[in-house]
Nucleic acid binder design. Structure first.
Lengths: 361, 361
DNA sequence: TTGAAAGCGCTAACAT
DNA sequence: ATGTTAGCGCTTTCAA
């Protein structure tokens, strides 16, 4: 015996067959005599035996490994808070269940390489993190029948992918309702990145709620952003140079809201006195900055956790029909949205509202 | 043929042996007739054949997979910026070289489980991210002879691990020198987390430079922190309640520096007019907050990149003698350290200094 | 230029 | 209660 000890070495030392050794080492010791069990166990221990995962995977035809695919856009995950919040949740669910995680970062220039890495029997299933519109990853069913769950992008049904995401639509609806209840009728909007489904969903919800309240939508107050803080600042410049201004602006995420507010400060336009601002995401760095931004809080960790759970469920049951799980967000009322006029604000009827301090009303 | 096509299926379809098929599919087509090559290639394509990584790994006795181990402390990587900056670098190096990455997050309560996951033949080598003092991971050589590189913790030699880290000592020395050159003689220090080697290295460098300049070390100005922003605030409370105050404080990282400054603002102690503050790390969120913190900038991405490079080098050469790579940091002079008195400041002799705006002097 | 055959280390029917 | 045997899908000598 040279190199790492194998099952054969252990069997030899215990003086029994490989099968016996394998069975006992896998915990099926009930059928064996106590003496045998002990011999095998101590032989394994003495040799420092560790089962070879590769061989086991080959024989079992499964790997207890889940692939996590980051879209090319997110290849550098550093500043993509979203991706690692989700990843944390995935880890939290998978790790205690003895699943391993393989990180897959597609090279932008070679989409086929991704498929080679995904569909090569090295993983049992895959979690796609926030695929964007037009991503080659979404051609999923053309290339692979591996169980998959997409996360962070509520895709159209035709992609035939199970999905877990926050409920962008409902959350933005709640936020917009709240702003309207504060008496605002002149409301602007800063759109998110055009390749993200979430951006469209948030915008759509905003428009719908305005319409439902009979509030006219002023297209000149709806500005294109890209989820980056700078784009919020640019939107501010565009908006604030108009002669007629809204009394409130909703940004499709916190980063843009903060960019917007920074520009406001430069222009000495007080928030929320002159203009109210709301964000979306409850970004950690914004909280940490001490900015009292009214926003939507949601649980990305939970998204990852549930995605992993759903995927394992599909693996176990073999039922891989596409499912969709939406996690509701929570309105967090802080200080950047003020009443448009001195009316008592009416509480929102059908949404959880978290006021700063943590009390629910 | 049912299920996924195997090499045998391709061989059968191409009308040749498995060996031939394998060779051609691996690019060793020079020894075969053009006709044969084409037949194999198109058979593979028609069947949608994808080589099974598990079987290949077993036969080759290597996996082209690198494990990345996050210390229990870092299991939730979300707010551990360090870990994913490094991870990004690791990905950047490994991914184009067709290595896969397996994420390993040890369960706090079961150290043995980690070894089972690491030493089971599923990875060729491993990168340990910022193991802390007392981490079971550091018993490395007791349990495994797998090539390994530790990152983010400059460990004592006896751990027999290759290492890549920023040069905490040199960087803190540069920073301290700078503060002294600004005329400060009364300098406080906020220590980092006591289980992190970096904390001790930074403190030691601070003390050394003070001593070298004949500046007395006032222990009551050296406060315990834990790298968290709150601990910086607490340190501020402790320090600022003393009757005799330093004119400058160096925090072992940015987070604590900001916590310290926030407390200063509460107490209406102007920074840097009354007290200068320096940080370490050049944290992204601090920059984004627009805080003009004088600090040390260093390249964590590079740390990960070089760690991956070193590991692969060891894998290829088989030379796994422990090596240590230290990456220098850069002093970034912003606005939180002011001259202690109206002397022209002398440029630092032997360190790169980056003044805000990017010019080097 | 091609192929046969012996593994890689383990699992799991199927004996005994 | 224990062992025999036939794979898992691929790589790789070695022979032809």
């Amino acid at each position: 015996m040279r190199g790492k000890p194998t099952l054969r070495d252990v069997a030899q030392r215990a003086g029994c067959s490989i099968t016996t050794t394998s069975n006992i080492l896998q915990g099926r010791s009930h059928m064996y005599k106590e003496d045998m069990v002990q011999r095998v166990l101590s032989a394994a221990h003495e040799l420092g035996y560790r089962p070879n995962a590769t061989a086991r995977n080959l024989a079992r035809r499964r790997t207890t490994t889940i692939g996590v695919v980051l879209d090319p856009q997110h290849a550098r995950i550093t500043h993509n808070v979203y991706a690692h919040d989700v990843l944390d949740g995935v880890l939290a669910y998978l790790e205690p269940r003895d699943y391993d995680i393989r990180l897959i970062t597609p090279r932008a220039n070679d989409p086929a390489a991704v498929w080679r890495r995904i569909d090569n029997g090295s993983i049992d299933g895959v979690i796609l993190i926030a695929p964007v519109m037009g991503s080659p990853l979404l051609e999923w069913r053309h290339y692979s029948s591996l169980p998959a769950v997409a996360v962070g992008s509520t895709l159209p049904d035709e992609y035939l992918l199970s999905q877990v995401d926050i409920d962008n639509d409902a959350a933005m609806a709640t936020l917009t309702e709240w702003v309207i209840q504060q008496g605002h009728r002149a409301i602007g909007f800063i759109k998110g990145h055009p390749l993200h489904w979430s951006a469209h969903q948030r915008e759509r919800a905003f428009r719908r709620i305005l319409s439902q309240h009979g509030i006219p939508i002023r297209e000149e107050w709806i500005l294109q952003g890209d989820y980056g803080p700078e784009s919020g600042a640019i939107a501010a410049t565009q908006l604030l140079s108009q002669k007629d201004l809204p009394t409130a602006v909703i940004a499709a995420n916190d980063d843009m809201a903060v960019g917007f507010m920074q520009k406001c400060r430069e222009l000495e336009i007080p928030v929320p006195e002159t203009i109210s601002v709301a964000g979306f995401d409850d970004a950690y760095w914004v909280q940490r900055m001490g900015i009292q931004l009214t926003t939507i809080q949601h649980d990305r960790y939970q998204v990852g956790y549930l995605a992993a759970q759903l995927l394992l469920h599909q693996l176990e049951t073999g039922d891989s029909r596409p499912q969709r799980i939406l996690i509701p967000g929570t309105l967090v009322v802080r200080r950047t949205v003020a009443p448009a006029y001195a009316l008592a604000s009416v509480p929102t009827p059908n949404a959880t509202i978290l006021t700063e301090g943590g009390s629910r009303q």
